[in-house]
Design a protein around this nucleic acid. Structure first.
Lengths: 199, 199
DNA sequence: TACACCATGTAAAATGTTACATGATTAG
DNA sequence: CTAATCATGTAACATTTTACATGGTGTA
């Protein structure tokens, strides 16, 4: 497994919890880890083939001859070793890319309305995310979920929660600041209009 | 300019502030926007050629015949229009990918030391980032920098600042929780050791 | 029967980083 | 003279998304 790509390891990590199909992996990633990790089918299926080719996972074809049925993958001993090695390496952080902040940075004076709409939208989204997150945090400990390391999962969710809270607070403060700027702009324009009328 | 790639527009945005060379663009992106945006040379130079091909930027070859000298790019009227259109579109957000949180999620019970080291490191990094950020926020308003929209730049920096603060708080809380877990683990192991001795 | 969802996969395009090649200019 | 920095660029590789193709299974 060359390169320092994390996709195969993310999948391997899920397989260590339980044998799974590509479709199920997708679902897990779209629910349990949606706040900090995701993969598309275009990544998952090729990665599963690689894992099999490396002997890190075993494939079992459930019912139906000819290979079209459901394919379940299980981690192997070699796979466990590889996963352990990877888990011990320090996590890599990706270069920051936040298009909203870039657009704010590049925006022109007098360009107030679009940012206001985006930030309002972000506020709605983050508030909704926080609600879902807190519901999940509540359900997790008492729920049907038996994650091998619930405690660490909760650490991860708490990180996301704090990021979301910070985003909400920023939105509120920035919307207030924008409202003041808009008032000033409106007054300036009205004054210009009056000057125009009486000239 | 096909696709919804933001690189050419980020560059165009810088060119609207002042004509610049590829090298200078790199430097701006590595200082002014380092906290929320960056580009590598491998992106910048091809993008500049595309901008020129689209008539969104004009190139002037400074001194030296033969094309090897410094190449300065300036935005054109068409470029301004394109940038304006792009700036009005809502920002796209990228799917979340945080390898630290993924590793925590995948970690095994009893696997306490590596996460502790990573989080300690993150705490150091975020604290340093906060210091630099706050120094920048202080210098910006009174400094030599005459950004066309200082106010919005500060909004962006404030977003990063709040994210950093949230990260620092999470690190501290999580380190404390980990320390408790480690103590419990040590006690468990000592007990096992005593059982072993007296058996 | 039709619709929703289960399920696997590929190809192409888009996107991005890294390493390298090349040479000029400037400060000590 | 030498090292650092200025400066432009390309090729190879790595990564990721998107769109498409294909068909099964359960249920109203």
């Amino acid at each position: 497994m060359p390169g320092h790509r994390s996709t195969p390891y993310a999948i391997l990590g899920l397989l260590r919890m339980a044998p799974m199909s590509g479709y199920e992996i997708r679902k897990e990633l779209a629910s349990d880890t949606e706040y900090f990790w995701s993969e598309s089918y275009g990544q998952i299926y090729p990665a599963l083939h690689e894992l099999k080719a490396h002997g890190w996972a075993r494939r079992r074809t459930a019912h139906a001859e000819g290979g079209r049925g459901r394919q379940t993958y299980a981690i192997t001993a070699k796979g466990r070793e590889a996963l352990d090695r990877w888990l011990r390496e320090p996590p890599r952080s990706s270069p920051p890319r936040n298009e909203l902040l870039l657009k704010l940075f590049l925006a022109d004076r007098e360009f107030l309305d679009p940012p206001e709409i985006w930030i309002r939208q972000l506020l709605v989204d983050e508030a909704e995310r926080l609600r879902k997150l807190r519901r999940l945090q509540d359900q997790l400990p008492r729920g049907k979920h038996r994650h091998p390391n619930l405690r660490f999962w909760l650490f991860s969710l708490e990180h996301v929660e704090r990021q979301s809270e910070a985003a909400v607070a920023w939105c509120q403060k920035t919307l207030a600041a924008l409202a003041l700027l808009q008032q000033a702009q409106t007054r300036r324009r009205a004054a210009a209009h009056r000057r125009h009328l009486f000239e």
